[in-house]
Protein backbone atom coordinates (compact mmCIF):
# COMPACT_ATOMS: atom_id res chain seq x y z
CA UNK A 1 0.00 0.00 0.00
CA UNK A 2 2.91 2.35 0.71
CA UNK A 3 4.22 1.77 -2.78
CA UNK A 4 0.81 2.60 -4.16
CA UNK A 5 0.59 5.76 -2.04
CA UNK A 6 3.97 6.87 -3.34
CA UNK A 7 2.94 6.11 -6.90
CA UNK A 8 -0.26 8.13 -6.59
CA UNK A 9 1.66 10.99 -4.99
CA UNK A 10 4.06 10.98 -7.93
CA UNK A 11 1.22 11.13 -10.43
CA UNK A 12 -0.48 13.96 -8.52
CA UNK A 13 2.76 15.96 -8.31
CA UNK A 14 3.22 15.58 -12.07
CA UNK A 15 -0.36 16.78 -12.37
CA UNK A 16 0.26 19.86 -10.24
CA UNK A 17 3.22 20.73 -12.46
CA UNK A 18 1.04 20.19 -15.54
CA UNK A 19 -1.56 22.55 -14.09
CA UNK A 20 0.87 25.45 -13.90
CA UNK A 21 -0.59 28.91 -14.42
CA UNK A 22 -1.35 30.25 -17.87
CA UNK A 23 1.61 31.58 -19.78
CA UNK A 24 1.92 35.16 -20.92
CA UNK A 25 2.53 35.98 -24.57
CA UNK A 26 6.23 36.73 -24.97
CA UNK A 27 5.79 38.50 -28.33
CA UNK A 28 2.51 40.44 -28.60
CA UNK A 29 3.29 41.36 -32.24
CA UNK A 30 4.25 38.01 -33.75
CA UNK A 31 3.77 38.95 -37.43
CA UNK A 32 7.18 38.90 -39.11
CA UNK A 33 9.06 41.91 -40.40
CA UNK A 34 10.70 41.99 -43.81
CA UNK A 35 14.44 41.51 -43.37
CA UNK A 36 16.21 43.89 -45.75
CA UNK A 37 19.99 43.80 -46.24
CA UNK A 38 22.10 46.43 -47.94
CA UNK A 39 24.41 45.41 -50.78
CA UNK A 40 26.64 47.02 -53.32
CA UNK A 41 27.40 45.81 -56.81
CA UNK A 42 30.49 47.32 -58.37
CA UNK A 43 32.76 46.49 -61.26
CA UNK A 44 36.14 45.32 -60.07
CA UNK A 45 38.63 47.48 -61.92
CA UNK A 46 41.30 44.80 -61.91
CA UNK A 47 39.23 41.83 -63.03
CA UNK A 48 36.45 43.71 -64.80
CA UNK A 49 33.88 41.45 -63.09
CA UNK A 50 30.97 42.32 -60.84
CA UNK A 51 31.92 42.53 -57.19
CA UNK A 52 28.88 42.04 -54.95
CA UNK A 53 29.29 42.55 -51.21
CA UNK A 54 27.35 43.45 -48.09
CA UNK A 55 27.30 47.19 -47.80
CA UNK A 56 27.48 49.12 -44.58
CA UNK A 57 25.91 52.47 -45.35
CA UNK A 58 28.38 55.13 -44.17
CA UNK A 59 25.75 57.88 -44.33
CA UNK A 60 23.05 58.86 -41.88
CA UNK A 61 19.90 56.83 -42.46
CA UNK A 62 16.31 57.37 -41.36
CA UNK A 63 13.63 54.85 -42.29
CA UNK A 64 9.98 55.58 -41.64
CA UNK A 65 6.75 53.99 -42.81
CA UNK A 66 4.16 56.34 -44.31
CA UNK A 67 1.34 56.32 -41.74
CA UNK A 68 3.38 54.38 -39.20
CA UNK A 69 3.61 55.51 -35.60
CA UNK A 70 7.22 54.48 -35.04
CA UNK A 71 10.40 55.45 -36.86
CA UNK A 72 12.25 52.25 -37.69
CA UNK A 73 15.71 53.79 -38.02
CA UNK A 74 16.28 57.31 -36.75
CA UNK A 75 19.41 59.03 -38.03
CA UNK A 76 21.89 56.20 -37.64
CA UNK A 77 25.18 55.62 -39.39
CA UNK A 78 26.75 52.29 -40.31
CA UNK A 79 23.55 50.40 -41.04
CA UNK A 80 23.77 47.16 -43.03
CA UNK A 81 20.38 45.67 -42.31
CA UNK A 82 16.89 46.88 -41.48
CA UNK A 83 13.70 45.09 -40.41
CA UNK A 84 10.54 46.54 -41.90
CA UNK A 85 7.20 45.45 -40.41
CA UNK A 86 4.45 45.51 -43.05
CA UNK A 87 1.15 47.20 -42.27
CA UNK A 88 -1.47 44.53 -41.44
CA UNK A 89 -4.49 46.80 -41.86
CA UNK A 90 -3.94 47.07 -45.63
CA UNK A 91 -2.33 44.98 -48.37
CA UNK A 92 0.51 47.39 -49.00
CA UNK A 93 2.76 49.90 -47.31
CA UNK A 94 5.55 52.29 -48.18
CA UNK A 95 8.75 53.05 -46.34
CA UNK A 96 10.75 56.21 -46.93
CA UNK A 97 14.55 55.98 -46.79
CA UNK A 98 16.05 59.39 -46.02
CA UNK A 99 19.84 59.46 -46.38
CA UNK A 100 22.08 62.35 -45.42
CA UNK A 101 25.48 62.25 -47.07
CA UNK A 102 28.31 64.56 -46.14
CA UNK A 103 29.89 66.14 -49.21
CA UNK A 104 33.64 65.99 -48.48
CA UNK A 105 34.40 68.92 -50.75
CA UNK A 106 31.78 71.43 -49.69
CA UNK A 107 31.22 70.00 -46.21
CA UNK A 108 27.46 70.24 -46.76
CA UNK A 109 24.96 67.50 -45.97
CA UNK A 110 23.13 66.30 -49.06
CA UNK A 111 19.79 64.62 -48.61
CA UNK A 112 18.30 61.97 -50.84
CA UNK A 113 14.92 60.27 -50.39
CA UNK A 114 13.77 56.94 -51.74
CA UNK A 115 10.50 55.12 -51.32
CA UNK A 116 10.23 51.36 -50.97
CA UNK A 117 6.73 50.03 -51.55
CA UNK A 118 5.69 46.50 -50.71
CA UNK A 119 2.44 44.88 -51.82
CA UNK A 120 1.34 41.55 -50.38
CA UNK A 121 -1.50 39.22 -49.54
CA UNK A 122 -2.25 38.78 -45.84
CA UNK A 123 -2.34 35.19 -44.60
CA UNK A 124 -3.65 34.60 -41.07
CA UNK A 125 -1.83 31.89 -39.10
CA UNK A 126 -2.34 30.61 -35.57
CA UNK A 127 0.62 31.14 -33.23
CA UNK A 128 -0.38 29.95 -29.76
CA UNK A 129 -3.06 30.13 -27.10
CA UNK A 130 -1.13 32.95 -25.43
CA UNK A 131 -0.46 35.07 -28.53
CA UNK A 132 -3.39 34.21 -30.79
CA UNK A 133 -2.84 34.79 -34.49
CA UNK A 134 -0.29 36.53 -36.70
CA UNK A 135 -0.16 37.47 -40.35
CA UNK A 136 2.23 36.11 -42.92
CA UNK A 137 2.80 38.19 -46.05
CA UNK A 138 2.42 36.20 -49.24
CA UNK A 139 3.46 37.01 -52.81
CA UNK A 140 5.19 40.15 -51.71
CA UNK A 141 6.21 42.49 -54.50
CA UNK A 142 8.79 45.22 -53.84
CA UNK A 143 9.14 48.43 -55.82
CA UNK A 144 11.45 51.36 -55.12
CA UNK A 145 12.48 54.72 -56.47
CA UNK A 146 16.08 54.92 -57.61
CA UNK A 147 17.66 58.06 -56.26
CA UNK A 148 20.19 56.57 -53.92
CA UNK A 149 18.94 53.04 -54.31
CA UNK A 150 20.23 51.24 -57.36
CA UNK A 151 18.15 48.10 -57.58
CA UNK A 152 16.27 45.45 -55.60
CA UNK A 153 16.68 41.69 -55.43
CA UNK A 154 13.79 39.72 -53.95
CA UNK A 155 14.93 36.60 -52.11
CA UNK A 156 11.68 35.71 -50.33
CA UNK A 157 8.24 36.49 -51.71
CA UNK A 158 6.49 34.78 -48.80
CA UNK A 159 7.40 36.43 -45.52
CA UNK A 160 6.66 33.94 -42.75
CA UNK A 161 9.56 34.51 -40.35
CA UNK A 162 12.52 36.78 -39.76
CA UNK A 163 15.12 34.07 -40.06
CA UNK A 164 15.95 34.76 -43.69
CA UNK A 165 16.66 37.87 -45.69
CA UNK A 166 13.70 38.71 -47.92
CA UNK A 167 15.12 41.63 -49.86
CA UNK A 168 18.49 42.95 -50.90
CA UNK A 169 18.79 46.64 -51.63
CA UNK A 170 21.71 47.55 -53.87
CA UNK A 171 22.98 51.06 -53.29
CA UNK A 172 24.53 53.32 -55.87
Amino acid sequence: MKLLTNLIFLVVIVGVIACSDDKICADPTPSPSVVVEFYKDTINKKTGKHDVFKYTLPDTLTVEGIGADTIIVKGLKGQQKVLLPPNITTDNCTYVFTIYKLNPKSGAREMTKDELKMTYKLQRRFVSQECGFKFNFINTVFEATENRLDSLETLQKDITNEGQTALRIYFK
Binding site: T29, A68, D69, P85, F135
Partner: peptide, 15 residues
Amino acid sequence: KYTINQKGWPGDVSG
Protein backbone atom coordinates in the same frame (compact mmCIF):
# COMPACT_ATOMS: atom_id res chain seq x y z
CA LYS B 1 -12.65 37.41 -30.90
CA TYR B 2 -9.06 37.48 -31.93
CA THR B 3 -6.87 40.55 -32.24
CA ILE B 4 -3.62 40.93 -34.17
CA ASN B 5 -1.31 43.87 -33.52
CA GLN B 6 1.68 44.89 -35.60
CA LYS B 7 4.77 46.64 -34.35
CA GLY B 8 5.27 50.13 -35.68
CA TRP B 9 1.77 50.58 -37.08
CA PRO B 10 -1.36 51.99 -35.48
CA GLY B 11 -4.57 49.97 -35.34
CA ASP B 12 -5.15 46.26 -35.16
CA VAL B 13 -7.05 43.55 -36.97
CA SER B 14 -9.86 41.71 -35.21
CA GLY B 15 -12.11 38.89 -36.31
